[in-house]
Nucleic acid binder design. Structure first.
Length: 581
DNA sequence: AAAGTATGGCCCC
DNA sequence: TGGGGCCCCTACTT
């Protein structure tokens, strides 16, 4: 096994060319599974699948059905008596049954491209009872139902100065923000398992590093499409985190659920282990240590590492030895999900954990139970990041479907400055979602995060990647492509370029902004589409979607016939918001 | 083509 | 405080 290079294939979207993707076979390797990511959405038939089976079920089942059928389900067959009195009362079980709550009278699941919620459950988006996601105020109208934040910073004069400075800066120099919303190329099934982390190489501009659930490390030059390598011997299970050595960009540190930290030479794939938390091998899940959070303190040549039992470790990267003893930074036995050092103050550490807290620490005087601040969350915190430039803000992603923003870490941190409702639920089969700052945005407002629940885009259910203005909660952009039907929990913005990398299932995609040419062409195309009565639509379904208009913004244009009007805002902000008493 | 499965949090006792 | 069972928009493979 040593380092192996295995190449699947790359597909590359040539700019316009009929719009079709060109599939390039990276190298004919053993397994030629092309598998064209087809299908999904084959169920256009909707309505009448279950009907057909039932003998002569009346159409308007709702009312009485809910009442009558329910006891029937629990009682022995004899219970069928009243209903029509005929014999085979057992057949009543053929009634539609909600797969979520097991009751009759309604059904949850996809109807075409629209997911119908079980009305018995709280809203899947905001978690509140009384409505479903289809009618959730957070989905339908932005900033509807917003509750003002209790009160953010107790405005000290320092705060005032800071705010005005930043504000001034923002209005003065805010650059035109380009959303990388055009699928440039993709690497399909490069990984054998789902992608769990992505990182751009800091100096080799077009190189993307990726890790997957099997521990495979991928290196891909997405300009030279065929230059891709994988190293399968670095880790034996989930690769959770990657960092390039700031003083030697040929070295990569990786953290894994196999309980080890590795340092890998990117050119050779040769690595060494810096830490192994399971020196005695597997003794059951109750003792197996996994590493999720990892950070570099460049100033001190330190590696900070946290495990799934709540402990933080320090490593000297040069001597490859532990320093000091592990410190409990989250509830004992609970997973630490992420670590981040403040970019302006590397000694200041932000940790997030399964104990529903994010915490700020001073690593110079670190003791269990002595964080500088504890930031309470509603559920597990998937990630927490200081803002990339000043380090003055904090952005967290929590499994309660809320993104939280603290605008100023030196202010009152009792409660977040904003809570933005956004669909990024936990699902054990998905890599946890993490909202991340755009490292290029020195106004420190833009964040990117994948969306869990789907939206109906021209008859296809897609899961967009959202760009969110964290200062207002406004949705700046939702990025989709009709060929990407899977959820995209892993997203990374390029440190210098207007490039977005996405990990979606086993595939990796690269997005770039539309060029001016493309935009103008699109506009003209859209015009002509208007002339050519109703051309664009109608084709849909059957797997490969016609990509004539992959940008959501033009989307329907023609409108009318498609009932599918997408309700766009799947998130809203809480706090700061005007309105409301 | 339906069924199976890998999996993590959380709820309840 | 620990373990068993449950589980709402998965992405596959058989």
């Amino acid at each position: 096994m040593g380092p192996t290079t295995r190449a699947q294939f790359v597909y590359n979207r040539r700019r316009r060319r009929g719009g079709r993707h060109v599939v390039e076979d990276g190298s004919d390797d053993e397994e030629q599974r092309v598998d064209s990511s087809s299908s999904s959405s084959e169920d256009e038939g909707d309505e009448e699948e279950a009907e057909a089976s039932g003998e002569e079920v009346d159409e308007e089942e709702e009312e009485e059905e809910t009442v009558a059928a329910e006891p029937a389900a629990k009682l022995p067959p004899a219970a069928g008596e009243k209903r029509g009195g005929k014999k085979g009362p057992i057949t009543i079980s053929l009634k539609k049954v909600c797969k979520v709550c097991k009751r009759t009278g309604h059904e949850a699941g996809f109807k075409g491209a629209v997911y119908i919620d079980c009305p018995m459950k709280p809203c899947f988006l905001c978690k509140m009872p009384g409505h479903t996601t289809l009618t959730c105020p957070h989905r339908v109208a932005m900033e509807h139902g917003v509750i003002p934040a209790p009160r953010m910073n107790t405005n000290t004069s320092l705060d005032y100065v800071f705010q005005s400075q930043v504000k001034g800066k923002i209005s003065m120099v805010k650059p035109k923000f380009l959303i990388p919303n055009q699928l440039e190329c993709g690497n399909i099934k490069f990984h054998q398992r789902r992608v769990t982390c992505l990182e751009f190489h800091p100096t080799k501009n077009n190189v993307l590093l990726s890790g997957d659930k099997k521990g495979l490390l991928g290196i891909w030059d997405y300009v030279k499409l065929h230059e891709k390598i994988t190293y399968d011997s670095v880790h034996s299970c989930i690769l959770n985190c990657m960092k390039i050595d700031a003083t030697n960009d040929g070295l990569l540190y990786t953290a894994s659920s196999d309980g080890t930290i590795s340092c890998t030479d990117l050119d050779t794939g040769i690595g060494s282990s810096l830490l192994n938390l399971n020196p005695n091998g597997w003794n059951g899940p109750s003792s197996w240590r996994m590493i999720y959070g990892m950070e570099l303190n460049t100033d001190k040549g330190l590696l900070l590492v946290a495990d799934n039992f709540g402990f933080l470790y320090f490593l000297d990267k040069r001597s490859k030895t532990r320093i000091g003893h592990p410190v409990l930074i989250h509830k004992k036995g609970s997973k630490v999900t992420s670590l981040h050092c403040n970019p302006a103050q590397p000694e200041v550490l932000l940790s997030s954990g399964n104990d529903h807290y994010a915490r700020i620490w001073d690593t110079r005087k670190l003791e269990a139970n002595s964080p500088l601040v504890g930031l309470a969350h509603g559920r597990v915190v998937n990630s927490g990041y200081f803002s990339p430039q000043s380090g003055n803000k904090i952005l967290t992603t929590c499994q309660d479907n809320r993104i939280r923003v603290w605008d100023y870490i030196f202010g009152d941190l009792q409660s977040p400055s904003r809570e933005i409702v956004h669909s990024h639920d936990f699902n054990r089969h998905l890599t946890p979602f993490k909202a991340e700052w755009d490292p290029k945005d020195y106004t420190e407002t833009v964040a990117v995060i994948g969306r869990y629940i789907s939206e109906n885009y021209n008859g296809v259910a897609l899961h967009p990647i959202d760009f969110i203005d964290t200062s207002s909660g406004k949705l700046l952009a939702e990025v989709t492509d009709p060929d990407i039907t899977t959820i995209s929990p892993v997203n990374k913005l390029h440190p210098q370029d207007d490039v977005l990398a996405t990990g979606s299932s086993r595939s990796i995609f690269i997005w770039k902004p539309k060029t001016e040419d493309e935009l103008t062409e699109e506009r003209t195309k859209q015009k002509s589409r208007e002339f050519v009565y109703g051309s664009g639509s109608q084709k849909k379904s059957n797997g490969k979607h016609d990509n004539s208009s992959d940008d959501d913004t033009d989307g329907d244009s023609g409108g009318k016939n498609k009932k599918a009007k997408k309700t766009r805002f799947t998130h809203t902000v809480k706090g700061k918001g005007k309105s409301k008493a």
